[in-house]
Amino acid sequence: MQNENIPSSKKLIYSFIAEKGTAAKADLLAYTNLTSSTLTRMLEEMIEEGLIQAADLGPSRGGRRPILYQINADYGYIFGLEVSRIHSSLGLFDMHLNPKSLIHWRMDEAMTPERFFEYTIRQIRMFLRDHGIAPERVLGLGIGAVGPLDRSAGTILDPLYFPAKGWSHIQICDLFQKETGWQTRLENGANAALMGEQWALRHENIQHALYVHAGVSLRSAMMSHGRIVHGTMDMEGSIGQMIIQTDGPRLNNSGNYGALEAYASIEALEKQAQTQAKMGRFPLLQHKEVPPEQINFDLLLQAQRSGDSYAQELFSQSATYFGIGLANLINIFHPEKVILGGALINSSQMYFETATDIAMKNAYYYPKYTPQFSKGQLKEAAVVTGAALNVWKAMEL
């Protein structure tokens, strides 16, 4: 088996064409350092195999207009799957990583691993039937999941805060591979999201990027010199344990005191709102006769969007704390682009603007150094796209 860290000449050619969109032979000669005859032979072989095709003629460089090559979008197909706590997603992609079908569903108390697997398999079969794609044309399934993970074993270990029971030590790659026969690869969701967003922005040639997801938990991923930075543990939620106030509270009597997750996470927001409601605040929710212990994120979103001042204050405070934690990360990594995602970031434009304003003002060397902030291009499709890309990159040619 080819070592995926040492790509073949075909893979180099294929990846270059895919990332550029189209490429002429002269571009490929300069990139690969192959001889003209060897490159011509490889291009002919790849056309015969259906990997690439002649797309158009490029502008003249002093002679005949050159042939532009592009990858064949219908050579095969890849599934991307997101396993998350609030919503999960499934996408079917062509070789350009354009989605042919996407579906999102809510994770609730009934969505156990067994039900999740059965539901996903039904959706996979439905997608294939809808597009008339035979299963053997699928090159693999990529999974982006909340951590901690054992990526090499394809196992979700013991993540917190799933609404349903049973999400512990799930050999998720084996489950899907045995059912489908497809290559299945696991990556943590934050890394997958950053991979997907980098692909969407590949023409900007971003080399150093930070991705932070703010939702039920806080998750982060870092890219340096165009590569995801993997630690010795896939503990994507550890950013939430960043201490921002040494004598502060801790969430659920676990983790660090004064950790970021105790101030800027969905559960922290819910607990603060429940405490406020017990003291007689949130008249809007009292009017709906909602007991304090039943106040949840959905109700808080409704209150905030209806103009409830107490709800808006809670979201503003959460965004401020999140911005402080974000500034700490920026001061460590110095990324050129910061991409933010998750339910809290998408709760309102105010949350995004407050968090990024606080982060920017607390970044060292500001205003000389100012990273670009974005909600990303792919948003809810970032994880499934990156998960599919993970399979695409591992494809052997």
Rank of each mutant, 00 (worst) to 15 (best):
P99E: 05
K100Y: 15
H104A: 06
H104N: 11
W105D: 01
R106V: 12
R106G: 07
A110V: 05
P113R: 04
P113G: 05
P113N: 03
P113F: 08
E114H: 13
R115P: 00
R115Q: 12
F116H: 08
F116W: 11
F117V: 04
Y119Q: 14
Y119W: 15
I121M: 09
R122T: 14
Q123P: 03
Q123L: 11
Q123E: 11
F127C: 00
L128I: 05
R129T: 13
D130Y: 10
G132M: 10
I133H: 07
I133C: 08
A134D: 14
P135E: 11
P135R: 06
P135I: 03
E136L: 10
E136P: 03
R137W: 09
V138C: 08
G140N: 04
G142L: 06
I143N: 02
A145G: 05
A145K: 00
A145R: 00
L149D: 00
L149M: 04
L149I: 01
R151C: 09
A153K: 11
I156L: 09
D158N: 14
D158E: 11
Y161I: 10
F162I: 03
P163A: 02
A164W: 06
K165N: 14
K165P: 07
G166Q: 02
G166E: 03
G166S: 03
S168P: 00
S168C: 10
S168D: 02
C173M: 05
C173Q: 01
F176Q: 08
T180W: 09
W182D: 04
T184G: 05
R185N: 11
R185L: 15
L186I: 03
E187D: 11
A190Y: 02
A190C: 06
A190Q: 02
A192V: 03
A193I: 02
A193V: 03
L194E: 00
L194K: 00
M195V: 05
M195L: 14
Q198C: 13
Q198A: 13
Q198T: 11
W199H: 13
W199I: 06
E204S: 08
